[in-house]
Write a protein that binds this DNA or RNA. Structure first.
Lengths: 338, 338
DNA sequence: ATCACTCACGATAACGTTTTCGGTGGCGGT
DNA sequence: ACCGCCACCGAAAACGTTATCGTGAGTGAT
């Protein structure tokens, strides 16, 4: 690997001047020497060692992001927003998949801290787990104490900058729409109950139903994996236990798509017999058949805002940006049959 | 930021011993000192500076990946495979999105080289662009000359280790299935013609059709963006020009989904009047309606193999692993109407 | 012709680790 | 009591870069 000294030697200058011309500028260098250095760089195919650079000028450049899984469209979208403003500001983005493993999440915080990132963005739901939360907050506090910035997306447990999708409000939209359509026998296909996202959406939904005098008994809620197959599984269990359901409210679009697949397999007409609701409005939601009625969360926007917050050094006081949910009516829902 | 010297000072030892106990092992250290160091680490919340470590022991740990866009399911799947074996081997994965911009691709090669990554994986189609190819190969060669490893996925232009999906063979499967179903008026919805993936799939398709005495005139091929909206656009153009088509062959699933959306919007029954074929078998393909007939590429497997190749230092001779395509029949295709 | 004075460049000290290389102490063997 | 040996630890040199600080030569003015 060619080093800066190699370049300097070949150009017949000192490493210092070589560094100067390669950095672009700052201090003046004669045109002739600049030429020679540039040529040496080209001949040796020299690329600066990023680690040495980072070490020398302690200029934290990169930004770390911890998400559940970039393959998951929910996080793909958020990541897109993060990427956009990060690269706009010339920052390198380090993406880490925690696969919702708290242990791994802690490890990644350490790793990113070791990488001297300028900021850490934690995206995705928090957990109902006091021990873990304390541990995580401890690590984050240590990071912040040394000048690092932390921004969370959709997690209550951290007390710093945050962008929060209105999960409760979204649950409310869902509940009111269910009532408007006259559904009374409603099954809920939910993700793992340790996720705060799930409980938030559920409480919003429950509150809205209560406004119309409807309860949401626990046996009408099935908790499963927060993905397509979990959705199919939970829907099957729900229908087996209670064949009279007229609506399935899935707490994310992946699960809703699993629900649709299962209903199609059982030849249950949607929405004539059973209506299906999703949550998130992933791009795929409009392409399934019937197109999915869902609660839209501005995912890309959430990512962009979070990165803007993370990169803006201002405001000692924690800033919380709340982003509203929006109901998107499509073809998978209709009035309750009677 | 607490440094190793801080830890050493607080523990009353030299930085050398502190380093020894933190590294886990190598040289023996008395139990008592080890205790003291560990406690100092805990108290100071010390995390080693990764850049300094990388610099000191020039142990290249991370691996870089350049993909088009991780949000794109095609690359999400590949990335999943890459991730799996990378983390299995304790490697950190750096993911870079080129958004199919050759310029950015070159930049990322430099960046990854600067990061001293152990290997670079280039995923996605190559370009029909001799100048760019020469430039890229130059940069890659420089990287390999200094001990870096390069593995490509689905790109012909690099002469090292490679994992190649059988795009031509897949095109052939498509062509033979079209003939088997009796289609003669076939429109092709293609991505940008500069992508070698597109031309490979097209030549395979063309060859198979020719075997059955069918031609594929250029006006039956529409080139558009390699995504959903491009698929809808190309399908519209195709149908407007030639209403009598009985089959649409899209060269990836995203485009096929766009085609389905457009056909639904125009109330064209699929597959009764027009059959739709996809390519890649992304997870979403089975969830659209009608479920998409497509050519499956083992995407996760491709990623896993590529990473295995990249991390296995053996074999000076370039290894090329070819992975077969497979036809997946679903509901979006049927016999040609007459 | 001397003197400040700028200007372009080179030494050199960081940055935070790892690692090699001596050096100290204690131990058993003759 | 002396010598070698071993086990453990600290001093110091790397790693590749940036940034500070001099230093020499060249300028203009006096």
């Amino acid at each position: 690997m060619a080093t800066l000294s190699d370049v300097a030697r070949r150009a017949g200058v000192s490493p210092a001047t070589a560094s100067r011309v390669i950095n672009g500028s700052s201090k003046p260098v004669t045109e002739e020497l600049r030429e020679r250095v540039l040529q040496a760089v080209a001949e040796l195919q020299y690329v600066p060692n990023a680690h040495a650079q980072l070490l020398a000028r302690s200029h934290r450049g990169a930004v770390g992001v911890i998400v559940h899984d970039v393959s998951d469209p929910y996080f793909s979208e958020i990541t897109r927003g993060l990427q956009r403003v990060a690269t706009d500001q010339g920052r390198l983005l380090m993406i880490c998949n925690s696969y919702r493993d708290p242990e791994r999440e802690l490890e990644y915080v350490e790793l990113l801290r070791g990488q001297q990132v300028a900021a850490i963005v934690l995206a995705g739901s928090g957990y109902h787990d006091a021990d873990f939360t304390r541990l995580l907050n401890g690590k984050l506090a240590a990071y912040e104490a040394t000048g690092g910035r932390v921004t969370v997306i959709g997690r209550h447990e951290h007390s710093g900058d945050a962008v929060m999708p209105d999960n409760r409000g979204g649950g409310g939209l869902l509940g009111r729409e269910l009532c408007r359509l006259g559904h009374e026998h409603i099954g809920v296909v939910a993700g793992p109950r340790v996720l705060t996202t799930i409980t938030d959406r559920l409480t919003g939904l429950r509150a809205a139903l209560a406004e119309h005098g409807l309860g949401l008994p626990e046996h009408r809620i099935r908790y499963a994996d927060f993905d397509r197959d979990g959705g199919a599984e939970a829907t099957a269990a729900l229908l087996d236990a209670e064949p009279g359901l007229t609506a399935i409210a899935a707490l994310n679009d992946s699960m809703a798509i699993g629900a649709l697949a299962l209903l199609r397999a059982r030849a249950v007409p949607v929405p004539q017999q059973v209506s299906v609701f999703g949550f998130d409005d992933m791009p795929m939601a409009r392409d399934v058949t019937p197109a999915l009625t869902t609660v839209r969360l501005p995912l890309v926007e959430m990512g962009a805002r979070a990165m803007a917050l993370a990169l803006d050094p201002g405001a000692a006081s924690p800033r919380v940006e709340s982003l509203a949910a929006e109901l998107i009516r499509r073809d998978s829902t209709g009035p309750a049959p009677r």
